[in-house]
Write a protein that binds this DNA or RNA. Sequence first.
DNA 1: AATAGGCCCAACCGCGACGGT
DNA 2: AACCGTCGCGGTTGGGCCTAT
Length: 254
Amino acid sequence: MGRSPCCEKLGLKRGPWSKEEDDLLINYIKKNGHPNWRALPKLAGLLRCGKSCRLRWTNYLRPDIKRGNFTHQEEDTIIKLHQVLGNSWSAIAAKLPGRTDNEIKNIWHTRLKKKRNESQPQETPDIQSEPESSNVDIHLEEANNSKDNNSEISSPKINTEIQQQPSSSSSSEYSCSNTTATSSESRNQTMSDNLLEADDDIWSEVVWAAVDDNYRDLSLMEDNYQINSSFNDDWFWDDLFTRSNELMLELPEL
DNA sequence: AATAGGCCCAACCGCGACGGT
DNA sequence: AACCGTCGCGGTTGGGCCTAT
């Protein structure tokens, strides 16, 4: 038994917004901001739930939203970011000023997923699908999206499962692939196969550069240090993603 | 002209995270 | 520590529009 929908209360309106409702919401937020979405509709004179107001504002009414079709450049950027970040739409949106996560999610499901699959036939399975074999299993759990992290790509938390140890410090010497997470982990992202597929583009370079850096660091450790165990440690992957995200943030706007 | 099917996108749902008490 | 309220996120839905037949 799930919780009841937030708008189920009698008298609260649902569905498409009217021009009058939009105006009420815009005017109220312009004057007062939105310190409390829950209380906002009542104060603004709207017969909506706070959640509905927040969605309408963040996905449609916000003044910094860029309307109109996505450019080819934007589409390519989304595809590349998706290879790295998976379904973290908010993180992808953070790299595309003026675009909302909802918009990006929509365009991904309607156009880009198909486009991506057409350009990489059979070679790059859908991010949700199970690969054939793996040397390193990476489970990207819930991205660490935090409230104070609006403009940055968050660091996903990672669990790892090592099956083969790399034989040298070169990234080409070790391979990794992903496995599908369990059913309760529908939001998990996997990336390694896709990164390998995208080996020639800048995004994979960014991540593999971070892998190399981490691996170099590890190589300098004591002789008897077991590299395998460090791959199994969360800190290794956390640091890897911190580094890759930092590098991405340093790139010029695409 | 009618209609079936696909596409598109705004909006809703449910869950987890987080902060306050 | 436990509970509660709020927020933000990703997944999903529903209806309007477009296109092919």
